[in-house]
Write a protein that binds this DNA or RNA. Structure first.
Length: 121
RNA sequence: AAUGCAAGCCGUCUUAUCGUCCUGACGGUAACGUCAGGAAGGAAAGUCCGGGCAACAAAGAGUGCCGUACUUCCUAACAGGAAGGUCCUGACUGUAAAAGUCAGGAACAGACAGUGCCACAGAAAAUAAACUACCCCGCUGCGCUAGUCGCAGAGAGGAAAAGGUGAAAAGGUGAGGUAAGAGCUCACCGGGUUGAAAGUGAUUUCAGGCGCAUGGUAAACCUUACGGGUUGAAAGGCCAAAUAGGUCAUAUCCACGAAAGUGAUCAGCUACUCGCUGAUAGUUUACUGAUAUGAUUGGGUAGGCUGAUGGAUGCUGACGGCAACGUCAGUACUAGAUAAAUGAUAAGACUGGUUGUAAAGCAGCCAGACAGAACCCGGCUUAUAGGCUUGCAUUAUUU
């Protein structure tokens, strides 16, 4: 480990798996995110990052938020301790563009929450 | 030099650490790794026009629907662009009037094909109309200067000249003419019309004749001319797991038969499977099944590839053209993602603003826009901190 990469394989795509995640996954809110998780049999954790176009009408703003979340996940993803692999969706629910440091802090909290959920199962 | 306007151009940079996508080379069975190269815009935006491309449709014509609307040209095409014309507005020059130059604007075909509408005000808003005032005529009354008189009244006519209303009042100004008036007549202007000349054309100029009642609105319906097949890359083309199905082979079980063996073929019903019916075949009344494994196969789901990035491309030069643009030659370029890459963090530089200081300098603080490719092009429209260049105007200074 120790590689802070984020390759194509880790990006969640495909209509079917996304539908499955949204219908069967379990979710929790932790401002500014809504997080949805689901166990899968893939070889890596796969992540979907979404910023609603309803709150951020300009593509530039959405891209900026997505990039910050992606960077935060990339740097902190080794904090995930589960053996089983997950599908994770991050949905950005805040109405303003938060600075990178805040997004980093909050995302670490969400990872801790996901780990806690694993231990209970 | 400053400010304003117009046109054109640019629209932050560097380093470090960690990362993303594409291409190539090398290593590796592969996963992947190493190295090298490349990776957003002037609007990528709005999706408002036009085209390429693709599929489907399509005898021809008419009607309907939608769009366009001064002319000529440019272009693949356009509602875009260039040049020009007409009208309107403003400024300047200038004159007795005229006229010219510059800048801006125009939904700039048709209102003697038809239908409709024209609020309020006003007498009247469209085959004209008489409220006030004006004029003539006869009648009645009154007056005295006793008339071809004056005043008043009601009546019958004339008249679009004056007043007032309105966005608009039926060509304008002047003269003649008349009871008063009227294109009733004349001159000039305006209008439409005929001819000639100039121009590819819109149109212009000149000449003749026309007295010339019949408004506005087509961003009301409408008429005329020209153009338009429909749907968009989620189009279209190709490959193709898994699962279910077809066919073949083998094995096992089962059924029939005394045994050998057989467990098929064809047609009809049904969208298909199953099933049913019939015929034929296996010496034959019967039976004409099931499961597993392997091979193969049609369609095709998930998914993938393609479409899809080199083009009506940019730049430079020559030639043609007033110009838009075209032709030729040279040269340069190369994003290709797909739940959607092109980044994150830190430091510094640069530019601008502001505060401190008498000022330069320096220091502190703040800011660096609009905005993210999605098949590709040509336009239009809208957003945009700051900077640069050129031209014009104004002001100030120096020579």
């Amino acid at each position: 480990m120790g590689k802070l990469t984020f390759k194509k394989e880790e990006k969640l795509s495909g209509e079917k798996s996304i539908q499955e995640l949204f219908t069967k996954g379990s979710s929790f809110y932790l401002s500014p995110f809504k997080v949805i998780t689901l166990y899968s049999n893939s070889s890596v954790n796969r992540v979907l990052i979404s910023v609603p176009a309803r709150t951020f009408k300009k593509a530039v703003d959405r891209n900026k938020i997505k990039r910050r979340i992606r960077e935060a996940y990339r740097i902190n993803k080794e904090k995930l301790t589960s053996n089983k692999k997950l599908l994770i969706a991050y949905i950005y629910t805040a109405k303003v563009i938060l600075p990178s440091t805040v997004i980093h802090e909050k995302l670490i909290l969400t990872l801790a929450q996901i780990n806690k959920g694993n231990e209970e199962n």
